[in-house]
Each structure stands twice: as C-alpha cells, then as structure tokens.
Design a protein around this nucleic acid. Structure first.
Lengths: 195, 195
DNA sequence: CAAAACCATTGATCTATGTTAAGATTTCAC
DNA sequence: GTGAAATCTTAACATAGATCAATGGTTTTG
C-alpha cells in the first residue's frame, strides 16, 4: 500500500481524477532510479531521452556556455519534473545538463512511454498541457525580470518566492540562477546588509 | 469553400487529423476581429481573456517596466498564436501588452471556448500541448542566449533565424527584442558594419 | 500641407556587473 | 586525519550597455 510510487500517484491524483487502472498504467510507465551527488541525469549535447519525477533530493539544470561559464536554468526538488523539454520532445541535442546536487531518487520515463501514457490516460495529456503552460508563464516572468531588473531586485524576489533556498543549494548556484558571478553575488549581499 | 477561417483550418489540418465535424466546431469557437495599428488586443494589468490566431498583419507582445522601458517578449505574424498565457489560463493580471504593429486581422477565442474545444476535439488538446512545449523550449533557448551572449551575438543569431525581420518591424522594436536600447543598437550595427 | 510626433544616429559620461587575483574557510577523498 | 579541492569573500580594474543630450530625417495627423 505504501510504496515508492506513492508521491507520484499523490501528485497526480491531487490534480486530476484517476482510477485504479490508470494508476497501474502510470506505475508501469516509470522506473525508479537513484543518482549520486554530481552525477548527470542528462548531458548537454546528447539527446535527453528521459523525463523524471523527483522523489527525494535536489538537482540543477544548467547550461555551460562557450566561455566555460555555467548558467542555472532551474532547480528541481521533490514533486518536480526534470528534463530538457526541447531535446526530449524533438529528439535534438540537449542544451542542458541535469545534475544531482545531492543523492537523488527519481521515477524516470521515456518519450515513447509518455506518449503512450497520454493516449491511454487522456486526463494526463491535459495535466501535462497545463503544467507546461504554467512553466511557460513562469519562464516568461523570469525572462522579463532578468531583462528589466537588477541582480539585487531579482535576488530579493527570489528570497520572497523561496525563503529557504539558501539552505537548499550553495551560494554560487544561486548566483548562477540569478545570472551573475559568485563575486558579484558576494558584493550584492554585502551592499544589501549594509542598509 | 474559401473563407476567412481557411488559414486556421489549414494550420490545424497540417498538424493533426480533423474531420468535417471537428472543423465546424473549430469555426464556431473563433470570432473574426480586426484591430488597427497601435491598438491593444490585451493590456498589462488587465486579465487577458483571449487567445488569438493571426490571419494577417503583425503584432508585438511587450512588457512596460517600472522605469517606463518597453521589453518585447515576442512578435506575432500570420499563423501565430498570441496571448498572455499566464493571464489567460490562470485569470491573473497580464504582464504583457499585445499591440498591433499595423492593421491586423485575427480569429479570437476565449478560455471557456478553448477548454470546451479541447474536450470536444482531443487531438487539439494534444496539438496545444505540443505547441506549448515548443514555445517553452524556444524561450529556454532565448533565455540562455540572453544571459550568456552579448547583444551583437544575439543580433546575428536573430538575423539568421529571421533574415527578413528588418523589413517587418522598425529598428527600435528589434532593439527592444534584443534587450538593448535603440542607441546601443545603432552603435552595435555601426561596429558590425565597420568590419 | 504644415506642425507635431516619432525615429535613427552620434557623442560624452555613468553604472552594474565581469575579470583577475589573492586569501580564508569549509568539505571531501584517500 | 591530512592534504587537496571546492567555496566564499574582498579589492582593483575593465567593459558592455545605459543614460543624457543634441541633431536631422521621416511619418502621421489634423
């Protein structure tokens, strides 16, 4: 009754109506996997063939640019979906690295299994449309915030949205998420404190 | 046989299988509308209650920041969908203004009609999931390009992707899309030409 | 058709953040 | 447990792009 799939089934049944049979199909579409700290679930340049639901742990999805700098696109925590969505659905090279920030437990699925799942459980097709729309809306906000506000304004906003973020991930990852270097982040915090 | 809905029905039937009845339902879900140059289809701060398919003309979706600067999130041309997706689906205040760059003809629909449409024509639910996923993937790329590249690199990339963009929209709109001011854009082009 | 509004360009200066370098502290691996 | 690696901080300097201001050209509008 209490197994490893429960967080996923709870996540789904909190959002859409599913019956016993749907749950069975869902369970059969996902495989448990554990990755160690620093291990990559998917790699920039390769095709990201998985989409995963985080059970435990934390991850960062980041892009390594031509100058060798890393840019965190988003973090992943329990109940989050992680993937390079462009690579996953269009079978193109991934822009992102999906890396565990600590030992992380996942339920992973593949493109074919997900498409099959959407056909067999149409309510899930709807759920994923809605999730993707919310992600798009959130990224639009983040993009506009990035082009119109300074790093300290973005930092204060982040703290409001995720007050415990500083406990969850190291500072230089937060800097990278904010789009600045650790040195600038240090400076920024000092200036904020001196007020 | 040849009516105002044809571009939309072509757009859809090029992507999914629809029968005669589906087409009828689709037509009933959209209303033609024409807006004049500079007119706003939806306004920042208000709820964006429409999602629209562009038949003819062009638009820009932009955010007006606290300092009074405008930031173009995207342009819209024939066969594009325009809306503030967050506002539309979550009934929250829109971040964006949707403005016509010239006289523009649209087919517009509402939240309730779209949700009904998705229920009556499930293949459309799938189509919109896929469109949204592609938009999300494209915005991720744009975001990463914005935080990792200089304005001239982004400009050259834009020219590759949309070589005729300079004919379609005025320069200061392109500057705004690139995330810089018209003055910086002028200078940037001069520097590129002097090589 | 003329006045007004808008648009592109240039130059001088300013500012947020990057760059480089160094030292202090914490964490990790053998 | 100890040395190596990773992390955080500070400081001096560099730079992309913003800001402010002025000019001439173009479109819009009454």
């Amino acid at each position: 009754m209490n197994d490893i799939y429960d967080p996923l089934l709870n996540y789904i049944s909190n959002r859409i109506k599913v019956n016993e049979k749907d749950c069975q199909i869902i369970k059969e579409s996902f495989t448990p996997k554990t990755i160690e700290k620093k291990e990559l679930l998917f790699k920039q340049g390769g095709v990201c063939t998985t989409t995963s639901f985080i059970l435990k742990g934390s991850m960062r999805m980041f892009y390594l640019d031509k100058k060798g700098l890393e840019h965190v696109l988003y973090f992943g925590f329990p109940d989050w979906w992680v993937s390079d969505i462009g690579s996953f659905y269009q079978h193109t090279p991934s822009l992102l690295n999906g890396q565990a920030l600590e030992r992380t437990e996942l339920l992973i699925s593949t493109y074919d299994k997900m498409e099959e799942l959407f056909t067999e459980v149409p309510a899930l097709e709807r759920l994923f449309r809605v999730i993707t729309q919310k992600n798009l809306a959130a990224l639009q906000q983040r993009f506009l915030s990035t082009v119109s506000e300074t790093a300290d304004q973005r930092y204060l906003k982040l703290l409001k949205r995720a007050p415990n973020i500083e406990q969850l991930v190291p500072q230089h990852q937060i800097a990278s998420y904010l789009g600045i270097l650790p040195e600038s982040f240090s400076r920024l915090k000092r200036q904020l404190h001196s007020k």
